[in-house]
Amino acid sequence: MKRLIIIMSVALLVVTMAVPAFAGKVVLKLGHIAEPVHPYGQGAEKFAELVKEKSGGEIVVKVFPSSQLGGQKDLIEGLIYGTIDMALVGTAVLGQFQPQISLFDMPFLFQDREHTYKSLDTVGMDLGKPLEPKGIKLLGYMENGVRHLTNNVREVKTPADMADLKIRVMTNKIYIEMMKSLGASPTPMAFGELYSAMQQGTVDGQENPSAHIWTKRFFEVQKYASKTAHSYAPEPLVMSMISWGRLDGKQRQILMEAAKEAIDWQRALSTQKDDEYWKLIEATGKIKVIEVDRTLFAKATRPVYEKFASVVGQDNIDKVNALKK
């Protein structure tokens, strides 16, 4: 907590100071933790391609995938200090800097993808504005995907089957409480440590979208996958306010336009790939894929709303619910 206070204090000081503009060609470093083949890894490359095209080569975005620039907390701190220009990071981590953006980590929040995108592009953009004084500019939301459960111990068809399972979660209070409400034992752990932790039995399982289950090859060290679809994982495209402040109006417009186009493209790709990944996962024969009654899991996680409505804002929950068909 002390470290977080120091970081945010430095951020407030930095963003209120004038910073020199980029000289000549603008080169921006963009980091993320996914494999390059992951849909949002491909989205990052698409964004870089669009920026180069729209700027006539004046702005170059260099993408650093697979945690080359560090984990998600490292990326966010890099944005605040200006050592990293751009990043794709999860709302679960951004929520440590802007608690209300953790709204999108709540279980069973969205009706379908159309409802998800409407919510992110309206309520979500409003919730990104308080990040700016803290050193972070939100350009929009790409997609990590719909999160599901895997484990090594037993078939999980109902919440009762989750009793005492050690499930790796992000260091995020909502995810911790979500797993507790389902009867599991949540184990916060860095993403980069997860494969070996499952391999060695340090944890029994994890929860992630199909894209990570496939591209990180989690199916090799897990026996069961339950399609719980318990939460949706946006992947915000964010920028250092220091770097943003060094751009002129035209350059900023180029980035915003490229971000919108890349996000639309990436969301369509992610939706298409989700079905493909599940087919590939099942075809390995290494992991049993199980359909579940999601209403049982949704009912079990209602206490998460009672506990966190005041954190994410009941008014924000109401705004998202109002966008349902």
Rank of each mutant, 00 (worst) to 15 (best):
Y232C: 00
A233N: 04
A233W: 00
P236C: 07
P236A: 08
L237V: 02
L237Q: 04
V238P: 04
S240F: 08
M241D: 04
M241G: 07
I242A: 13
I242E: 05
I242T: 11
S243H: 07
W244K: 11
W244L: 09
W244Q: 06
R246P: 09
R246D: 12
D248A: 04
G249Y: 09
G249Q: 14
K250M: 14
Q251I: 02
Q251L: 05
Q253H: 12
Q253G: 15
Q253A: 15
L255K: 07
M256G: 08
M256T: 15
E257D: 15
A259I: 13
A259F: 09
A259G: 12
K260Q: 10
E261N: 05
A262Q: 06
I263A: 07
I263E: 11
W265R: 06
W265L: 09
A268S: 13
A268H: 03
L269N: 12
T271C: 05
K273N: 10
K273R: 13
D275T: 10
E276T: 03
E276F: 03
E276A: 05
E276C: 08
Y277G: 00
Y277K: 01
K279P: 00
I281K: 00
I281V: 03
E282M: 04
E282R: 05
A283N: 05
A283S: 11
G285R: 01
K286N: 01
K286T: 03
K286H: 03
K288A: 14
V289I: 11
V289T: 13
I290W: 01
E291P: 00
V292K: 02
V292A: 03
D293G: 02
R294V: 09
R294E: 13
R294K: 10
T295L: 12
T295V: 11
T295P: 11
L296W: 07
L296S: 04
F297C: 02
A298N: 14
A298R: 13
A298Q: 14
K299R: 07
K299G: 01
T301H: 13
R302P: 02
R302A: 13
R302H: 05
P303Q: 06
V304H: 04
V304P: 08
V304I: 15
V304F: 09
Y305R: 07
Y305T: 05
K307L: 15
F308S: 11
A309Q: 15
A309R: 15
S310A: 14
V311P: 02
V312I: 11
V312A: 13
V312F: 11
G313N: 05
G313R: 03
N316Y: 14
N316W: 15
N316P: 09
N316V: 14
I317Q: 10
D318I: 00
D318G: 08
A322D: 14
A322I: 04
A322F: 11
